[in-house]
Deep mutational scan, measured.
Amino acid sequence: KKRQCKVLFEYIPQNEDELELKVGDIIDINEEVEEGWWSGTLNNKLGLFPSNFVKELEVTD
Rank of each mutant, 00 (worst) to 15 (best):
K1A: 08
K1L: 05
K1V: 07
K1S: 09
K2G: 13
K2Q: 14
R3K: 07
R3G: 10
R3F: 05
Q4M: 15
Q4K: 15
Q4V: 14
Q4R: 15
Q4T: 15
Q4L: 15
Q4E: 04
C5V: 15
C5E: 02
C5L: 05
C5M: 06
C5H: 00
C5R: 04
K6N: 05
K6G: 04
K6V: 15
K6T: 15
K6C: 14
K6L: 15
K6P: 02
K6S: 12
K6W: 11
V7Y: 01
V7R: 10
V7S: 06
V7A: 12
V7W: 00
V7T: 00
V7M: 01
V7P: 00
L8Y: 08
L8F: 15
L8P: 04
L8A: 07
L8Q: 06
L8I: 14
L8C: 05
F9H: 15
F9C: 08
F9I: 15
F9M: 15
E10T: 09
E10L: 01
E10S: 14
E10A: 07
E10R: 11
E10G: 11
Y11G: 01
Y11A: 04
Y11N: 07
Y11R: 14
Y11W: 07
Y11E: 02
Y11M: 00
I12S: 11
I12M: 13
I12V: 09
I12Y: 14
I12Q: 09
I12P: 10
I12C: 08
P13L: 00
P13W: 01
P13V: 00
P13F: 06
Q14N: 07
Q14C: 08
Q14W: 01
Q14S: 07
Q14F: 01
N15E: 08
N15R: 15
N15T: 11
N15H: 11
N15C: 08
N15Q: 09
E16C: 05
E16T: 14
E16R: 13
E16D: 10
E16Y: 02
D17G: 12
D17V: 14
D17W: 08
D17H: 07
D17T: 08
E18F: 01
E18L: 03
E18S: 01
E18A: 01
E18H: 07
E18Q: 06
L19V: 03
L19P: 01
L19M: 07
L19D: 02
L19Q: 05
E20M: 09
E20R: 11
L21R: 01
L21S: 02
L21G: 07
L21F: 01
L21P: 00
L21I: 06
L21E: 05
K22T: 15
K22S: 08
K22G: 10
K22E: 03
K22P: 03
V23C: 05
V23D: 02
V23H: 03
V23L: 07
V23A: 04
V23M: 07
V23G: 05
V23R: 12
V23K: 14
G24T: 04
G24I: 09
G24M: 09
G24D: 09
G24K: 02
G24Y: 04
D25T: 05
D25V: 02
I26N: 01
I26M: 07
I26D: 04
I26W: 05
I26L: 09
I26H: 06
I26A: 00
I27L: 06
I27N: 04
I27E: 00
I27G: 00
D28E: 15
D28R: 05
D28I: 09
D28K: 08
D28H: 11
I29V: 14
I29Y: 01
I29M: 14
I29G: 08
I29K: 03
I29Q: 01
I29D: 12
N30V: 14
N30I: 06
N30T: 06
N30G: 09
N30A: 08
E31G: 10
E31I: 11
E31Q: 09
E31M: 09
E31Y: 11
E31T: 12
E31P: 01
E31K: 14
E31H: 03
E31A: 12
E31R: 14
E31W: 02
E32W: 06
E32M: 15
E32A: 06
E32I: 08
V33T: 05
V33K: 09
V33S: 10
V33M: 14
V33E: 10
E34C: 13
E34Q: 11
E34W: 07
E34D: 08
E34L: 03
E35T: 10
E35A: 09
E35V: 11
E35M: 10
E35C: 13
E35P: 11
G36Q: 05
G36C: 05
G36S: 11
G36T: 04
G36A: 07
G36R: 07
W37K: 03
W37V: 09
W37R: 06
W37D: 06
W37M: 09
W37A: 01
W38T: 03
W38P: 01
W38K: 03
W38Y: 14
W38V: 05
W38E: 00
W38C: 06
W38A: 02
W38N: 03
W38H: 03
W38L: 13
S39R: 14
S39M: 11
S39T: 12
S39L: 14
S39F: 05
S39G: 05
S39E: 11
G40F: 05
G40A: 02
G40T: 00
G40D: 05
G40R: 03
T41C: 04
T41G: 04
T41V: 14
T41M: 10
T41E: 12
T41H: 10
L42I: 09
L42Y: 13
L42N: 14
L42T: 11
L42W: 00
L42E: 00
L42K: 08
N43C: 10
N43L: 05
N43P: 01
N43W: 03
N43Y: 04
N43R: 14
N43M: 11
N43I: 00
N44R: 08
N44L: 05
K45V: 04
K45Y: 08
K45R: 12
K45M: 04
L46C: 15
L46W: 13
L46E: 15
L46Y: 13
L46F: 14
L46A: 13
L46T: 15
G47W: 02
G47N: 02
G47C: 00
G47I: 04
G47S: 00
G47R: 02
G47V: 09
L48Q: 08
L48M: 11
L48F: 10
L48D: 01
L48E: 04
L48C: 11
L48R: 15
L48N: 10
F49I: 00
F49K: 04
F49C: 00
F49R: 00
F49T: 00
F49Q: 00
P50C: 01
P50K: 09
P50E: 01
P50A: 00
P50R: 12
P50Q: 08
P50V: 00
P50D: 03
S51D: 07
S51E: 02
S51C: 08
S51G: 07
S51H: 07
S51I: 10
N52D: 13
N52M: 11
N52F: 09
N52I: 10
N52V: 09
N52T: 13
F53T: 09
F53K: 12
F53L: 10
F53A: 13
F53Y: 13
F53R: 13
V54W: 00
V54I: 11
V54C: 14
V54L: 02
K55A: 13
K55P: 00
K55W: 06
K55S: 09
K55M: 13
K55Q: 14
K55L: 08
E56Y: 02
E56C: 13
E56F: 06
E56T: 12
E56H: 03
E56V: 11
L57R: 03
L57K: 09
L57G: 01
L57W: 05
L57F: 11
E58P: 13
E58K: 13
E58N: 12
E58C: 12
E58H: 10
V59L: 13
V59D: 15
V59Q: 10
V59S: 15
V59G: 13
V59W: 11
V59T: 13
V59H: 13
V59A: 13
T60V: 06
T60P: 15
T60S: 12
T60K: 13
T60F: 10
T60L: 13
T60G: 11
T60C: 10
D61M: 11
D61A: 08
D61H: 15
D61K: 04
